[in-house]
Design a protein around this nucleic acid. Structure first.
Length: 918
RNA sequence: GGGUAGUUAGCUCAGCGGAAGAGCACAUCCCUUACAAGGAUGGGGUCGCAGGUUCGAGCCCUGCACUACCCACCA
């Protein structure tokens, strides 16, 4: 085999070819297979409007690592791709396009608009999926789903009908969160609260004079929303509030409007807030809505679905935007002397999570899903451990959310989505078209997957479907089973397997759900509710929650802040593997991460290091004629071999454990540390001694270990850095024992390591050797000995055992510390004009006649001495502590004694040396 | 108002009961035949504050202070 390999790793040359080969080779495909354990992940479906951002890159890299890892561990691993139709968000995108063309959806009409939506989705909806291929994701593309495709839509209809039949879905006129810009209701969770400094206005409400009253009397109410006063139908105070007790039965004259409204007594009023008197606007405030219900106060709607004042707001205000109306109301109140005071008041304001408009609570007819029972089930699954959270700390927020959940408003007044499968008979009359009129029809609504031909009750054919669509999250909640064809259990039967297994039974419940915590409630909790309701089983047994990607200063990356780092740009500049590695390295479970350009540079450098180390190994391996027994174990191993094998085994053990535990950051760091700091910095350097030797047997010994461990490390790295490792694998697999017939790294197995073979003696001895080498290097560096210059060193071991270590590994010292001649002498004394190092078990003298700067050496030794003396003091303190000696474990006490001994010797020798220096 | 996490080297973060760590940045030397996207060496930290538990505490407990995020019908 001829090895030709560039000096610098160029990702673009590598990445372009592999994805297609993997895909065409069927490595991403999974079909049910009897006797093979499935491992399933369904992708959190990105919106069709999406373009790959860092959050996606992180989320999908982590999933890809898990899938590739499981494939290598011989699971039947499936990762299902797909996209979400993204209801409001997507409709907004297309509406914007229309607007640019000078059109709007209403002019276009529902049918044409939806046609346009589909056209857009056909043109642009796959962008993000294509970007996922660029990221290298091992998704089974033959299973790509879309929440509005036929399969998923069927599941949505079936789910709605089932829930309706079980009495869990109902329709009602409620005060809901309304976005006046998107023109639809929103679920509670779709409202984002932001703290703002608003104003609290104190307004005088005149009390109607009783007979004989001379003075004008007022009640003062405090409000943050003066414009809603036009819709007030009462004023409420707490029944315990002494200030207002004697006003019982009073009538209040609503200013500006002149309406007479009652004073009511209600526990919901907080006596300590404001003036203790609350204006009650049932149609525009949730609390007031409830107070009104208790006291039978009427509703007066003064704000419409566009956020403008209605006719009922009065002629002066009708048609005004709600904020203009506020100004005018305040102005008018002030003019009448009714505005008492204005104070700053911090409070949180709800915004639409799609367009950021201020949400308006409005009364409207909506569909709701009862959640109490589903929530109980979902909580139980987390409580009894059927669903595990990584990290565990996310369980509590999940529980708390479910505990306080209120019924879910599932209808949306937009056009893009799954239309609610409810039909209304408009009777035999023609012409009724508003929702109100439909409701008033005598016949009950018809709930059906197919449009009914005629009304089952009256036989009328004048039937119209409910105009609303379902919340996009309703379909997402079904994702873990809708992708497998639910409710049709037989669907997918035997797809390529011929074994009578069907997808739903084989793959459900899925294994792990990987997501950021921002959609824990919006999505994860709801999948659990729906999974338990429809499948009778959890949708996944593990939830791996990763952090949110932030910028260098800790802010969430967003287009509006302009602080996004585009993952596509990073892939372009540094390579996909570098992007993936950088993300993985900072992906501590549940912790947000701050990314900067630096992390990509460092990951790119790591990729290059892997490239060059592999290049080195291959350059030396080529030309060697291997016989059948080229395996590492044939030759007696020397220290470096035993050491690196032990380090490797530890790495395999730790990395495997880390990935299984979803500690991807630990896995990445462990591999980085092993490969760079151990394999490259030490083992390759030591192996060079034998590689340069004339003894072919020696060369083969070192190279066989180099290549075996390189292969193993590449395999471990491959889930994180698939492109680079695949490319290198193709060059080395011919030399490696374990490859079998595997053509691609994804099909080769994950390394196994026998932990019992971790050789502690080798680890300890190597640590000693490294210390000696490092201490000599330090002297060289600090005394400015030119790197090329060989030196003479005298090593004075303090025991026979220590002497043997040096004797055995003399060549290591000579090569790595550039020692020309080395004397080992237990009785040596420090030569004149020499530098000194004292480490545990050794003194090392480096004669530097002519080279040594005595002052420099003195300073250096003084520093060392100070350190040693501090150490002695610390140890003495401990050992002098009676309770330490008696209560600490003996091993600990021995350790301190050992350290004391080392430090004493060190300080003694250095002190003598300093004296000699003068 | 409630909850959760965080506060360790200039920056990003590991460590979570027994001598303060890594990467980046910085300084010195080196283009040594895998790699200058590299190598060797070095400087730099009363581990947010105050108590407590322990022979021993970044590490466990209790307060407090900031910071971030989440939840909430604070008119």
């Amino acid at each position: 085999m001829k090895v030709e390999i560039e000096k610098v790793y160029e990702p673009s040359k590598t990445e372009s070819k592999w994805y297609k080969k993997w895909k065409d080779g069927g490595f991403f495909r999974s079909r049910p297979e009897a006797g093979k354990k499935p491992f399933t992940i369904v992708i959190p479906p990105p919106n069709v409007t999406g373009s790959l951002h860092m959050g996606h890159a992180l989320n999908n890299t982590l999933q890809d690592i898990i899938i590739r890892f499981k494939k290598m561990r011989n699971f039947n691993a499936l990762w299902v791709p797909g996209t979400d139709h993204g209801g409001i968000a997507t409709q907004n995108v297309v509406e914007k396009l229309l607007k640019a063309e000078g059109k709007d959806r209403h002019a276009l009409g529902r049918e044409k608009f939806i046609e346009r939506m589909w056209q857009w989705r056909a043109e642009s909806g796959d962008t993000i999926l294509n970007q996922l291929t660029r990221l290298g994701c091992a998704l089974d593309w033959e299973r790509t789903r879309f929440t509005m495709d036929e399969t998923c839509s069927r599941a949505v209809l079936a789910a709605f009908i089932e829930l309706f039949n079980r009495g869990l879905i109902y329709r009602g006129k409620r005060l809901v969160n309304w976005c006046p810009r998107c023109h639809t209701a929103l679920a509670d969770i779709e409202v984002e609260h932001e703290e703002e400094i608003g104003k609290l206005w104190h307004i005088k409400y005149p009390i109607e004079k009783a007979k004989g009253d001379k003075k004008e009397k007022f009640l003062v109410v405090a409000t943050t929303r003066p414009e809603t006063m036009l819709g007030d139908t009462g004023v409420a105070v707490n029944p315990e509030d002494k200030r207002y007790k004697k006003l019982k039965g009073s009538k209040i004259l609503l200013p500006l409007v002149g309406r007479e409204i009652p004073l009511v007594y209600d526990d919901a009023v907080d006596m300590t807030f404001g003036t203790g008197a609350v204006k009650v606007t049932p149609a525009h405030d949730p609390t007031d809505f409830e107070i009104a219900a208790r006291h039978k106060l009427p509703h007066v709607v003064v704000i419409d679905f566009h956020g403008r004042m209605t006719e009922d707001a009065g002629a002066d205000y009708k048609g005004l935007d709600r904020y203009e109306a506020r100004k005018k109301v305040l102005h008018d109140l002030e003019a009448r002397g009714l505005l008492l005071e204005t104070v700053d008041h911090p409070h949180s304001i709800g915004h639409c999570y799609r367009c950021n408009s201020v949400v308006e609570p409005l009364v409207s007819e909506q569909w709701f899903l009862k959640v109490e029972e589903m929530s109980r089930k979902a909580m139980k699954a987390a409580e009894d451990g059927r669903i595990k959270f990584y990290p565990e700390s996310w369980r509590k927020p999940y529980m708390m959310w479910l505990e306080n959940l209120r019924d879910w408003c599932i209808s949306r007044q937009i056009w893009w989505g799954h239309r609610i499968p409810v039909y209304y008979c408009r009777g035999k009359e023609q012409g009724a078209s508003s929702k109100e009129e439909m409701k008033q029809s005598a016949c009950p609504p018809i709930v059906s997957a197919e449009p009914p031909k005629k009304c089952p009750k009256c036989g009328g054919t004048n039937i119209e479907q409910d105009p609303d669509v379902l919340d996009t999250w309703f379909s997402s909640a079904l994702w873990p089973f809708s992708v497998f064809g639910w409710p049709d259990k037989g669907r997918g039967k035997g797809q390529g397997s011929g074994e009578g297994l069907n997808d739903l039974e084989y793959y459900y419940p899925t294994s792990v759900l990987v997501t950021g915590h921002e959609i824990l409630y919006l999505w994860v909790a709801r999948m659990v509710q729906m999974g338990l309701t429809f499948m009778g089983d959890i949708p996944f047994s593990e939830v791996f929650i990763h952090g949110i990607v932030r910028d260098k200063s800790g802010k969430k990356m967003s287009k509006s802040l302009g602080n996004v780092i585009d993952p596509l740009g990073v892939m372009e500049k540094y390579g996909t593997d570098a992007l993936r590695f950088a993300l993985t390295q900072s992906a501590a479970p549940g912790r947000d991460m701050q990314l900067s350009e630096d992390s990509f540079v460092s990951a790119r450098n790591f990729a290059n290091k892997i490239w060059n180390a592999s290049r080195f190994v291959m350059m030396n391996v080529e030309g060697i004629v291997w016989d059948e027994n080229h395996i590492m174990t044939v030759w007696p191993m020397e220290l470096a071999d035993r050491w690196i094998l032990s380090e490797y085994r530890k790495t395999v053990r730790d990395v495997t454990k880390a990935i299984e535990n979803y500690d991807m950051d630990v896995a990445a760091r462990t591999l980085y540390e092993f490969f760079w700091s151990k394999y490259c910095d030490w083992y390759i350097e030591l192996a060079k001694i034998r590689i340069g030797s004339d003894d072919l047997k020696q060369r083969k010994a070192a190279l066989s270990i180099l290549i075996e461990l390189l292969a193993g490390t590449l395999r471990m790295l491959s889930p994180v850095m698939p492109y680079l490792t695949e490319e290198l694998w193709q060059s080395i697999r011919g030399f490696v024992k374990h490859t079998g017939s595997s053509e691609n790294i994804m099909l080769s197995s994950w390394p196994e390591a026998d932990e019992s073979k971790i050789d502690q003696q080798a680890l300890d001895e190597m640590a000693l050797v490294q210390q000696v080498i490092t201490s000599v290097r330090t002297i060289r560096s600090e005394m400015n000995v030119p790197p090329g210059k060989g030196i003479t060193v005298t090593v004075k071991p303090h025991s026979d055992e220590k002497r043997k270590v040096i004797e055995r590994n003399g060549s290591y010292l000579q090569c790595l510390a550039k020692i020309e001649t080395m004397e080992i002498n237990s009785k040596a004394s420090r030569p004149k004009q020499s530098a000194l190092a004292v480490i545990s078990g050794y003194e090392i003298f480096v004669p530097l006649s002519g080279l040594i700067d005595l002052n420099k050496e003195k300073t250096r030794l003084e520093k060392e001495l100070t350190g040693a003396r501090q150490e002695i003091e610390r140890c003495n303190q401990k050992l002098g502590n009676e309770s330490f000696v008696t209560r600490a474990p003996a091993a600990e006490v021995d350790k301190i004694k050992q350290r004391l001994g080392d430090a004493q010797l060190k300080s003694e020798r250095i002190a003598v040396s300093l004296q000699n220096l003068g």
